[in-house]
Design a protein around this nucleic acid. Sequence first.
RNA 1: GGGCCUAUAGCUCAGUUGGCUAGAGCGCCGCCCUUACAAGGCGGAUGUCGGGGGUUCAAGUCCCUCUGGGCCCACCA
Length: 850
Amino acid sequence: MSDSAIYPQVPEKPSLDGLEEKWGNSWVSKNTYAFDKNCDKNSVYSIDTPPPTVSGSLHVGHVFSYTHTDLIARYQRMVGKKVFYPIGWDDNGLPTERRVQNYFGVRCDPSLAYISNFEPPKEPSDKQIPISRKNFVELCEKLTLEDEKVFESLFQTLGLSIDWNYTYQTIDKRARYVSQKAFLNNLNRGEAYQAEAPTLWDVTFRTAVAQAELEDRERPGAFHKIAFKKEDGSDVFIETTRPELLPSCVALVANPEDDRYKSLFGKTVTTPLFEVEVPVVAHHLADPEKGSGIAMICTFGDVTDVVWWREFNLPTRGLIGWDGKIQNDLPEWIKTDKAIEIFSKIIGKTSHTTREILVEELKKSNQLIGEPKPITHTVKFFEKGDKPLEIVTTRQWYIRNGGRDQNLRKQLLSRGDELSWHPDYMKVRYQNWVEGLNGDWLISRQRFFGVPLPIWYKLDENANPIYDQILIPKENQLPIDPQSDCPEGFSESQRNKPNGFIGDPDVMDTWATSSLTPQIAGSWGIDNKLFNTIFPMDLRPQSHEIIRTWLFSTVVRSHLEENSLPWKNTSISGWILDPDRKKMSKSKGNVVTPIDLLKEYGSDAVRYWAAMGRPGTDTAFDTGQMKIGKRLAVKILNASKFALSLNATLKKDDVKLEVDHALLNKLAQVVEASSKAFEKYDYTKALEVTESFFWFFTDDYLELVKERTYGKQGEESANSAKAALGITIHTLLKLFAPFVPFVSEEVWSWWQKDSVHLQSWPKPEEISANRNIGVENLELVTKVLAEIRKAKTEKQLSMKAEVLDLVINSNNEGIEILKKAEKDLIAAGNIKNLSYKIQTGELKLEIKLP
RNA sequence: GGGCCUAUAGCUCAGUUGGCUAGAGCGCCGCCCUUACAAGGCGGAUGUCGGGGGUUCAAGUCCCUCUGGGCCCACCA
């Protein structure tokens, strides 16, 4: 059959082995996915790729969601968009800080001076060496470089069509510049401000945390019933889970409708042990159903305390310090000798120990009524912390986010409406979050590693900071570190000196940088031409649990800075679930290493599995799907090889037979369906229609026409089939290219020039020569063929077995169609005698086998 | 306490605005070592569409309600 010299590149035995390396390297070295920054803004499709945390390791979830983005990127590139698809590495924040500390045996001390050419010890010792922030950042960059290489290699093996020329790090110079510039703009416009206020505080990390970083955890606790003395000497009982806060009690509160306590409102009571006189107030937030219906207000036990403290203008009786321990100084409100004696026992103790001591004291004085009643309640935690949060009054920096401003909140809500969500129900999470905000965005962190707040404060004649006299750098000085750089008009010798200056010691929240990924990726303020070309971006892909943080904060920054949305679309990917429907996570020990998966099944196969997960839908980890993906890839190799060996052509004018026209029309329908699905970000649908056509093509059409290509029905008929085969393979490779880029590229390279990934996405009108010929011209024929196969199977015969006699009962129309393809049918079914009977009703076959 | 998603074959999932005997793949069973492919081909069996109620000529699809699973939010003394 083969004068197969037409496609000399078609291998004898095609294989998937080594395709990832072969084509992955080729794409990088040829800059296949390079973005042309001089292109027209209207032709751009830009993607705000999530920067993965480099100090963690990549897991299957990354492979899953990054593949989704890549599917979209590849489709957009093929429909003619200039795709801006950069990636960043998130090396800013606590995880990297911890990793660098442990790896090098150092810790960051911003008060130290920078040492050039600092070399960390070869082996980290037990005692961490303190180094300057600048040195710390350098070590971070050094360490994360290694991680980034591993990540980059994995992403290349996976076949992500990222443009590696636009890579950034969230702690690099550009990110620091952008973060500081944006902050200073916020400051200029009055959107950033500092305030001394009760702040949620993590005692382990000793830093303030934001509302977006909280999570609730179930914790065991106990109700302690405690007696307070009324003015008349009788007792009133409160129930509390935190008796250790008794010294910071500033009032009791009950519901205004609660008859049990109405008589007490406006009067005072005396606290047990510490004998402080406090008022009894009425407030609707006090729940008569909880505990005894009357509660103590402390500064501060929880956020409701803050509300009451603010509304009733109560005094601040701070108790717990930054380290989570009872403050060292004797508070001025504790006066009696007995109270002072008790307080002296808890100074410097943790809240846990304090609770034990005070419970003991209360028992001794008979002011604890009965045994504590164990309960389980939810307590607020910093999501990365492992001790409950305290509330401490501190001076912090905030950015307005609508939490205190109804007007801004409305604007941000309408930004949410403006954004296209995929799937759209994810918008509700955004709305819930914005509507539930109870304060502005706290961006300062009392950490050492991160982007520093770019400000200094003037010092008075006693070297105390004057916080409302802020010194700011010029834009061309950025990025700065106020701990090592010096404000204009001052010299370094004036640092920390009377009438001198002091650098703000804090760094920004990691989200204060991440919220600027479009600006960082687009080199805002550095290459404004690039930035204007790619902004607003087209797509933000991300997962749903960070809608409240990453997505929202990015919208806030863009709204304030550009008065626009940062992107037009967001696609929210789901999670990977275990077969038992639990979220896959490291702690459960069920995480599979992605690189092993890619090795075992091949990247195309793993991508196939990922593509089966629709946007927003949690997807089961299923190696079965990967096996199917691998089978598909193998089949693409073999079917293509076969079609090409039949001397397939791309000569559309050669297509003459109706079955061939019908095949191409069926393909044109697939192109339409796939394009439509991709436009709606439904890549799964796009894959399904292509895949299902492909199996029809190999199982039915190829079987039907292969004899004809050998020329047994004449050259014109043979050429018609060859053209249909060639056009179909050519189109299928493009339709498959976003999903299985390696095998598509491999087959493309056998007979076509350049990369399949730079081809234009197929259009129905390019494929079909005559769209008037209906697909039923082919489907009826393949149906007859299927009936013949079924008959052979039932008689347990080989598919090659001869059909002695076939009588086709059909209506006129059907017989017309079948007659035109009868030579194909006779060849493919090995039919000896074929005849027709006209009848009304549906198709019926009489098959006579040996 | 408020809200969102989800429940379809043993498994993973499709099922568009309500419309013929509810589909696919895997798995299972049977057959075919057939010259592109045994990492293959052909065929077959399998469902009270989570339960209950309602609207309708017609409900997997719309409404109500209950239950299971997952998630987000909430002022949790």
